[in-house]
Simulated assay, not measured.
Amino acid sequence: MEIDGIISAIFIGIIIGVLGRLVVPGRQRIGVLWTIAVGIVAALIGSVLAAAFGVDDTKGVDWIEWLIQIGLAAFGVAALDRAKARR
């Protein structure tokens, strides 16, 4: 992963975090900054996974990579919400 891929993953991570939060049903007890942080981490991990599976180099929009990233963000938001609920 090159530096431009990392920078774009960070910017896209903000969008991914919000989309991941929208996918999770119900009200989440985490803040906006946590949502963005989860989105950035999910975007970076999703990019690495997409590269590992070989689905990251397509012409146009990488829909499969986006789905992986959104799924990871939804999982991260739900996991963080449950961790906060335990406290």
Rank of each mutant, 00 (worst) to 15 (best):
V61M: 15
I36N: 01
S8Y: 07
W63Q: 03
V32S: 12
V24L: 12
L22C: 11
A78I: 05
R82M: 06
T58M: 11
V24W: 06
D81Y: 01
P25E: 00
A73H: 09
G46H: 11
R29L: 01
V23N: 02
T35D: 01
T35S: 07
I36F: 09
V38N: 10
V23Q: 02
G39L: 00
G54H: 03
D62F: 07
I36C: 06
F11M: 06
G76K: 02
L80P: 07
W66Y: 14
A79I: 06
I12Q: 03
E65V: 01
R82S: 10
D4P: 14
G5C: 05
R27W: 06
G13Y: 00
I14W: 04
G71I: 03
A52T: 14
V41P: 07
Q69A: 13
R87F: 03
I45E: 15
D62A: 15
V48G: 08
I68M: 08
G46M: 03
L67N: 12
D57K: 08
D81V: 05
I6P: 00
F53G: 09
I3K: 04
F75R: 10
R27F: 04
G5R: 12
G46Y: 12
L33N: 11
W34V: 07
T35P: 00
A51Q: 13
F53W: 15
G76S: 06
A43N: 08
T35Y: 00
R29A: 05
G17H: 02
I45N: 15
W63I: 04
D4G: 10
S47A: 04
V48A: 14
S8D: 02
F53T: 09
A50G: 14
I40T: 14
V18K: 10
G20P: 08
I10N: 00
V23P: 00
L49D: 09
D62E: 13
A52W: 13
S47E: 08
R82A: 08
I30C: 08
G5W: 09
I40V: 14
G54N: 08
E65D: 05
I70P: 10
A42R: 00
K84L: 07
R87I: 01
I6K: 02
L67F: 15
L49A: 13
R21F: 02
A79N: 07
G31F: 11
A78P: 01
I7K: 06
V77C: 12
I68Q: 09
V38C: 13
L72S: 11
F11V: 13
G17L: 05
R86L: 01
L67R: 09
